[in-house]
Design a protein around this nucleic acid. Structure first.
Length: 902
RNA sequence: GGGGAAUUAGCUCAGUUGGUUAGAGCAUCAGCAUGACACGCUGGGGGUCGCUGGUUCGAGUCCAGUAUUUCCCACCA
């Protein structure tokens, strides 16, 4: 017998199994066509990232799904990878270069990319190795990086195809410009934040009406020099007679027209709006409608340029704002300034207000929008929790073209070439292909790269080498696609989830304008999307580096063990809700593992056994002699089936938190607290049948728990085995299998109910003792007055267990009413033998209980006297109420009898 | 402005299609070193289920309204 430590020490098993799993190639992609396939798609973490709290939950869930599939006899693979993280990595590399004294303005693109690549190779992928210590079972040998050669070809192919199919165009538009990182951003990368600002009221003199002016209101006086008109609502009575006239722009003085446009809200400010087409998207649209010129007065970095006028050149937009306000004030053109709160778009990365900027960019008009909606609304792809479907569908309903070009170097360079010295706006001078033109010396490639999300959106098939058929065969695309489950956060539902669905609809089959339901079903990238909650701190704030409220995951693993951490985090993650992170829950996880460890230790103490690696369920059952099974054995085996069935349902519905709770309560309450205690002496006596029952329960628990806590379970599974090997592919019997396997045992279904009664009897007896404040060292005696003959038989059969479980010297039977402290149980009345009876106290207790019962009886009586209740309620409810009434009444009678004798 | 989610014990949450006296864990209180486990065992206390109406024999559960919290989406300068 191997000695197991008294306390589970994670460190002793984690490292061993981490390397063993990898050495034994446990997670390699091996296709077995006789099995059903199962594929988990890992959301590729940023190559710049390190393991954070969110990953723990996310990765644990993915791992659990993959491992559960393996125990269900499926051929499972989990594809890992990393994202090149466009802006994020570029910013990091730039910082490092500056630190090393390298001038970013003069460095060449190729040189920069060399540095960036080196940075990635050095720091990137840390996260995947960190994940290993969490015990993830992903296929490390097939990890994919979004800038890998093969994957890149996929990204560019998608671009080229979409261009050919007419979905990609180049245009000069107002885009979200980040003045800090100097690139365009998509609408999704802009977050609105309420900001305290000021609303300035400015007078523009009317040219045709000397002495009169029109008052406009603006939050951005620094753009006045870019004004090309003043607009009013055509229905606005105040201004109707001014339409068509002109006013004077107060700075860089110029005459500009007063125009009418429906975009203007009569009720906001003065009802007159200055039009600056270069610096506002609404204004741009108005400008287009009225054929107005465009005056861009800002540099890309947000400073003012020469068109703003000499005195403002080079000023930052916010400094200029104050200066211009002062100047307007001095001129007498500023009539008032109001405090004002409005929503300003911020660049997520740069954390500065974005600048609406007119520039030449590449745009994608999304293909297969309707199909992508149907993929979800028709249920081909299921979201958990379901309510995210609405968010998804709403986004698709209001979808707008996607600006996919970024003014960066790090990323997939746009596969478009322009003839040298030609007009780039003329598409006749373009070449669009993955490999470029053959006479490349006559062409210049577009400088921009693609938005990172325009590369990760092909992830579900890009990881299989799409569009390279040979590679796809090699990677078993046919077998694993569509993937089964994607676990991710709802914060990237638009960024990523929706776009992956769109890309799959477009590319996972021949080019078609529209798709039938059948075709949609064939193209979906994944069948289920599980959205996790966001991990928050005790104050409900998001975990973030800047707040410093995020614990270091590796420290937590060291403190609680990977298994404890995994179990604890699943325990605290209610499905579909954000979770408040509390280290206490990790303690619970650690405690659970320790309890499992000790329960296992106990079940094998002082006896010979065969390791689980060498014995099947049938083998164990064969060791049972049916005659030796007692009521507790019957009940625990039946409860095992019941619990497994519940558990299976919960897992199937992705209710992982509930599943964890079920398994925890079966193991801890049913098995440890009841069965282990009840069967202790028989096990100690060497009863083989009891040992086998323990083995059945423990074996099943290990199989069910392995996906959640893989280290400890693999260790226990292998206790006694010299050539240890992972249990990950051992088939886990379902509740149905168990029922069939237990058929030969003739389990008695009534045992569950009887054991419940015994539990309550035990609980109440203990309460009686604990409340009576007798000295424990005192020799105690209980007298039982059984309710019925059947009750007496049950109790007599169980008497020795009762004595041990209650921890008393002796129990005897009586049919008299005794003047002793007593308690009513479903099986009869229990009296505690004490030296001195405090009769006042006892009478009070009895009276209180009689009163309580009387209240209940009254309620029952009222209900049963209602004709409506009797005619409309279903029979079993009426029966139940009657039964309750009679039980309560007879209980009350018993108590009254006792009371009357005192 | 539109939409989603939440509101049940001091805390974190369960509560399936309406049905008998609303559950769990943590925390708390009391007792126990009982031959696996003090990361443990036993027992106790603690809730008019956000609020107001409605439907129903019966509502934590269904409907309407309302309040608070929170997250998305949206071009009022």
């Amino acid at each position: 017998m191997e000695e197991l430590s008294k306390v589970f020490i994670p460190d002793h098993v984690e490292k061993k199994w981490t390397s063993k799993w990898l050495d034994d190639c446990c997670f390699d992609r091996i296709v077995d066509n006789s099995k059903e396939s199962f594929c988990v798609l890992m959301p590729p973490p940023n190559v710049t990232g390190v393991l954070h709290m969110g990953h723990l939950l996310n990765q644990t869930l993915q791992d659990a799904f993959a491992r559960i599939a393996r125990h269900c006899n499926k051929c499972a693979t989990w594809i890992p990878g990393t994202d090149h993280a466009g802006i994020s990595l570029q910013v990091k590399v730039e910082k490092e270069l500056i630190k090393n004294g390298i001038n970013l303005k003069t460095i060449e693109r190729e040189k920069f990319l060399e540095h960036a690549g080196a940075w990635r190779d050095k720091h990137g992928g840390v996260i995947l190795s960190q994940l290993k210590s969490l015990g993830v079972s992903c296929d490390f040998k097939n990890q994919v990086h979004t800038l890998d050669g093969g994957y890149s070809r996929g990204v560019l192919t998608a671009f080229v195809e979409l261009y050919k199919r007419g979905y990609i165009y180049r245009g000069k538009r107002i885009v979200n410009w980040c003045p800090k990182t100097l690139t365009a951003l998509s609408d999704e990368e802009v977050t609105m934040k309420p900001q305290k600002s000021k609303l300035y009221y400015v007078q523009y003199d009317i040219v045709e009406r000397p002495g009169r002016s029109i008052e406009i209101s603006t939050t951005r006086p620094e753009t006045i020099m870019g004004d090309v008109a003043v607009a009013v609502n055509p229905e606005d009575e105040r201004y109707k007679n001014l339409i068509g006239l002109h006013c004077k722009r107060p700075l860089n003085v110029m005459e500009i027209p007063i125009i009418a446009d429906n975009a203007v809200d009569k009720n906001f400010g003065t009802g007159a709006l200055k039009i600056t087409p270069a610096h506002d998207s609404v204004d741009f649209a108005v400008g287009q409608r009225h054929n107005l010129p465009i005056i861009d007065i800002l540099n890309p970095d947000g400073t003012l340029n020469a068109r703003a006028g000499d005195e403002f050149i080079g000023l930052d937009r916010f400094t200029a704002r104050e200066k211009i306000a002062e100047k307007l004030q001095a001129m007498g053109a500023l009539s008032k300034v109001e405090e004002y709160e409005n929503n300003i778009g911020f660049s997520e990365r740069g954390n500065v207000p974005i600048e609406p900027r007119l520039s030449e960019q590449w745009f994608l008009k999304y293909p297969k929008v309707d199909e992508s909606k149907r993929a979800v609304s028709e249920g081909f792809i299921k979201f958990y929790p379901k309510h995210w479907e609405k968010t998804y569908l709403h986004w698709l309903d209001n979808i707008r073209d996607w600006c996919i070009s970024r003014q960066l170097w790090w990323g997939h360079r746009i596969p478009v070439w322009y003839k040298k010295n030609s007009d780039r706006s003329d598409s006749n001078n373009w070449h669009v292909s993955v490999d470029g033109p053959s006479d490349i010396e006559n062409w210049e490639r577009d400088e921009d790269v693609l938005d990172t999300w325009a590369s990760s959106w092909i992830w579900p098939f890009g990881v299989f080498g799409w569009p390279d058929q040979e590679k796809m065969n090699e990677k078993s695309f046919q077998y694993f696609y569509p993937t089964n489950v994607l676990v991710t956060g709802p914060d990237i539902i638009f960024f990523w989830v929706a776009r992956m669905i769109i890309a799959s609809m477009e590319f996972m089959g021949p080019e078609k304008k529209s798709l039938s339901d059948k075709e949609i079903k064939e193209r979906i990238p994944f069948e289920n999307v599980y959205f996790t909650g966001i991990i928050r701190d005790k104050l409900g704030r998001k975990m973030s580096k800047s707040l410093g409220n995020s614990p270091e995951p590796l420290d937590l693993i060291a403190k609680y063990g990977a298994d404890g951490l995994r179990f604890g985090i699943l325990l605290s993650a209610p499905s579909g809700q954000d979770l408040i992170f509390n280290e206490e829950n990790l303690k619970l996880g650690r405690n659970f593992c320790n309890k499992l460890w000790n329960a296992f230790r106990f079940s094998r103490i002082n006896r010979s056994y065969t390791p689980y690696t060498k014995i099947s369920l049938a083998d164990i059952i064969a060791k049972i002699s049916t005659a030796d099974l007692d009521i507790d054995d019957h009940a625990i085996l039946l409860n095992l089936i019941k619990f497994c069935s519940t558990f299976e349902g919960q897992v199937k519905n992705f209710e992982i938190n509930a599943a964890i709770n079920s398994i925890s309560s079966f193991f801890w309450n049913e098995y440890c607290d009841w069965y282990v205690e009840a069967s202790k002496s028989r096990l100690k006596d060497g009863n083989k049948t009891v040992a086998a029952v323990h083995d059945i329960i423990m074996r099943q628990l290990l199989l069910l728990l392995n996906p959640f806590i893989p280290f400890i379970t693999d260790e226990l599974w292998n206790v006694g085995e010299r050539n240890q090997r992972s249990m990950q592919n051992v088939y886990c019997e379902t509740s149905k299998d168990l029922r069939a396997a237990f058929d030969c045992l003739n389990l008695d279904k009534t045992s569950i109910g009887v054991v419940l009664q015994l539990k309550e009897f035990l609980n109440l007896s203990r309460r009686l003792i604990s409340q009576s404040q007798v000295e424990l060292k005192e020799r105690m005696l209980l007298h039982i007055c059984p309710k019925t003959e059947i009750a007496e038989e049950i109790l007599r059969n169980y008497i020795s267990k009762l004595q041990r479980l209650i921890g008393i010297e002796k129990i005897d039977f009586t049919d008299e009413i005794l003047q002793l402290p007593s308690i009513q149980t479903p099986l009869g009345i229990v009296y505690l033998q004490v030296a001195k009876v405090n009769s006042v106290e006892e009478k009070k207790k009895l009276a209180w209980e009689i009163e309580r019962l009387s209240k209940l009886i009254r309620l029952n009586e009222i209900q049963l006297s209602s004709r409506e209740f009797l005619t409309r309620a279903p029979a079993h409810i009426i029966e139940g109420t009657k039964k309750m009434l009679s039980e309560n009444t007879s209980r009350r009678e018993e108590l009254r009898k006792i009371l009357s004798t005192m």
